[in-house]
């Protein structure tokens, strides 16, 4: 399936782009992360400390082991610092 994958803050900077379309067979967000890390060093580096990464599925904050299901958009970002 085709997914829009978004990166924010230092994840965006380390990977070098804010958004890309990814063709994947991953079952969960964690599986998708493993696929991305295997691609290139910059992804491997960006996702090296998953304790510092949060994710959203179709703009909803979810745990990393969430199934991708029929989602269209996955986003990765550090803990939020609003306010």
């Amino acid at each position: 399936m085709k997914l829009q994958v978004l990166y924010f803050a230092w994840l965006r900077e380390r990977i070098g782009l804010g958004r890309e379309e990814v063709e994947t067979q991953a079952a969960t967000i964690a599986d998708l992360v493993a696929e991305l890390r295997a691609r290139e060093d910059r992804y491997d580096l960006a996702f090296s400390d998953m304790a510092a990464v949060r994710c959203a599925l179709d703009q909803e904050l979810v745990p990393i082991d969430t199934p991708l299901g029929t989602a269209r958009e996955v986003a990765f970002f550090p803990p939020m610092t609003g306010g």
Partner: peptide, 21 residues
């Protein structure tokens, strides 16, 4: 503070740094 998707970066003469949660 921690549930709205905003990220702050501070830019000083020394460089730029993302504010840690």
């Amino acid at each position: 503070k921690s549930r709205a998707p905003f990220w702050k970066k501070e830019v000083t003469a020394e460089g730029a740094e993302w504010v840690a949660a």
